[in-house]
């Protein structure tokens, strides 16, 4: 049993306190055979021929925000990276860096939320690690997750497959996560609360791939830097991307908060939104499948792939003019994931 209510340096020193912490917080919540074995490495059945492997670290401040927390985020972020690569996520590992003095109640809440999100996403957290650093050497807690998934035969997604004329689809409103975190951090008193969209997207992706098959050319989760930044990464020698401002779904509260703070929602992070490039013939079916899914009710066609300005992402304004959406030099907001 852990009697102390806060994390001590001793929790990271490998002795009894470490063991208690792992058992009572991590194993208790994330419970599965591989983790319970507490071996040096988890041994798992190979999920398929082609594997997808990814890793991500999470430093969001504050650790708990409307619509989510750092634990939920750490699962969603890695699951979504696997999903948009066309992989079926299977296993996660996680590493925690804890600041001396962290409230144990917060850690429990975060790990519980992590476990719940993992269950929801159908992944197992099979290995983990905990380190404790001196007070002031970290800000509360940081989490790393790595994820392993398998890529079913014949599946291939990527920006090299983009064709002029493909339509760009998003699964709902943009900028919710970044603004929710910003509002929570700055304590800005808006009447309408904004909640993060943080969610595992793997089931939505499967639904889309069933509906569109190989006509779904490329997927990305529009996280750090928002939709505009992700699309800039797609733009290359052959193709550009053209967005239509009037088609972009943005929640009124997010639009108002961005207006108030001088931010552009197209550059604000999402944690439960993806953008898909889909061949025009298949787009209606994919859009219908997205809208029928709980995470795609507000899905919309927001633009298209074009050959007319390769390398550029552009926005058609409601006034008929068209301007470039560049890559920003720095993020608009620090530490949102």
């Amino acid at each position: 049993m852990i009697s102390d209510e806060r994390i001590l340096m001793a929790h990271g020193e490998g002795g009894e306190l470490t063991r208690d912490l792992i058992q009572s917080v991590f194993v208790a919540a994330l419970d599965n055979d591989e983790l319970r074995a507490l071996g040096d490495a988890a041994i798992v059945p190979a999920p398929g021929d082609r594997l997808a492997l990814t890793t991500d670290s999470f430093v969001v401040k504050p650790a708990v925000f409307p619509g989510g927390d750092i634990g939920k985020l750490a699962v969603c972020g890695t699951v979504n990276d696997l999903a948009v690569a066309g992989a079926v996520p299977r296993y996660l590992t996680t590493g925690f860096v804890l600041e001396e003095g962290l409230e144990l109640a917060l850690l429990r809440e975060v790990v519980r939320s992590m476990a719940e999100t993992a269950r929801q996403a159908g992944v197992t957290v099979v290995a983990g690690d905990t380190k404790v650093v001196e007070r002031g050497a970290a800000d509360g807690l940081y989490i790393n997750t790595a994820g392993l998934g398998h890529v079913p035969a014949g599946r291939s997604l990527g920006p090299e497959r983009l064709c002029p004329g493909d339509l760009l689809l998003v699964n709902g409103t943009l900028g919710d996560h970044g603004m929710a975190v910003m509002m929570a951090r700055e304590g800005l008193p808006f009447d309408t609360p904004i909640a993060s969209d943080c969610a595992p997207l793997n089931d939505l992706v499967e639904t889309m791939l069933v509906a569109g098959g190989a006509y779904v050319r490329c997927l990305r989760d529009a996280t750090r830097g928002g939709l505009a930044t992700v699309l800039n990464e797609w733009a290359g020698d052959r193709v550009g991307l053209a967005l239509n401002e009037t088609a972009l779904p943005i929640a009124p509260a997010v639009a108002a908060a961005c207006e108030f703070l001088g931010l552009d929602p197209l550059y604000v992070a999402n944690e439960g939104k993806l953008v898909a490039a889909v061949a025009p013939d298949a787009a209606p079916a994919v859009l219908a499948a997205m809208r029928a899914h709980p995470l795609g009710g507000e899905a919309a066609v927001v633009g298209q792939v074009t050959a007319s300005h390769p390398g550029l992402v552009t926005l058609r304004t409601p006034y008929g003019s068209e301007r470039v959406l560049p890559m920003l030099a720095g993020g608009q907001l620090p530490r949102i994931c």
Binding site: G262, H309, S321, R323, V324, P326
Partner: peptide, 17 residues
């Protein structure tokens, strides 16, 4: 944030191909 060069850089107009 209010600089003219930053504005022209940030909001470049699309040139006709």
């Amino acid at each position: 944030a209010e600089g003219s060069c930053a504005a022209y850089y940030r909001y470049a107009e699309v040139q006709d191909a």
